[in-house]
Amino acid sequence: MKVLVPVKRVIDYNVKVRVKADGSGVDLANVKMSVNPFDEIAVEEAIRLKEAGKADEIVVVSIGVKQAQETLRTALAMGADRAILVNAADDVHTDIEPLAVAKILAKVIEEEDPGLVLAGKQAIDNDMNATGQMLSALLGWSQGTFASELDIDGDKAVVTREVDGGLQTIKVNLPAVVTVDLRLNEPRYASLPNIMKAKKKPLDEKTAADYGVDTSPRLEVVKTTEPATRAAGIIVGSVDELVSKLKEAGAV
């Protein structure tokens, strides 16, 4: 079975996000970028499926700016077999919306015919949590979102999902789109030899136009602002003072 994993280039998890003063967005120039952490978990899971003999090829796909090559190389160094970069924007600040990404992925999938798509549940930049579900809808496939456990059982996948209040286990027909949550696995670090090897792995470049997909946004970004800050509170000296302050405020 071939596994396809979409990966997104996003601001590094540890970088402090700075909102531009003119309200036009978040400053991404000269900022460290990395693989979206949820996508890294998806890549890791695909590699584990391959190691367990349940997958035979892993194709990683990124849609965005040409710099996403680095993102794909990271996934190749972890253990993916080949990569497809779909150039869809020139400016690093352009965020291709999940609907357009899902449409391009659906076209890639028509050509690649994978048995499973493993995707991160959301990207840590736009926090939309939508691409996997949208892709599944466009393909008419089943979906298993927010997976914390995944098992392939013949022509079905058993997915344990992290839901409000606990866990839900479902069985989905393959091919399926499964989106992964934090606790599914801990992604490996790429070793130096594997990073060197990854440079020689195939990376195809395409454009959104090659797939005939219109990527113009459906949501016009009016402005981006800093979140409201809370007024500073007070430091109390003791538990008793805390209790009396809480009583004064009517909180207990």
């Binding site: 926090d127 949590n129 579900q133 979906q143 979102t145």
Partner: peptide, 23 residues
């Protein structure tokens, strides 16, 4: 924006060929 709705609504949006506005 519960986990159930986040599971379902993007699927609805794609079937209607519209974007979802999450959260």
């Amino acid at each position: 924006a519960t986990t159930d709705a986040k599971n379902v609504m993007p699927r609805v949006a794609a079937l209607l060929d519209v974007m979802v506005i999450s959260d």
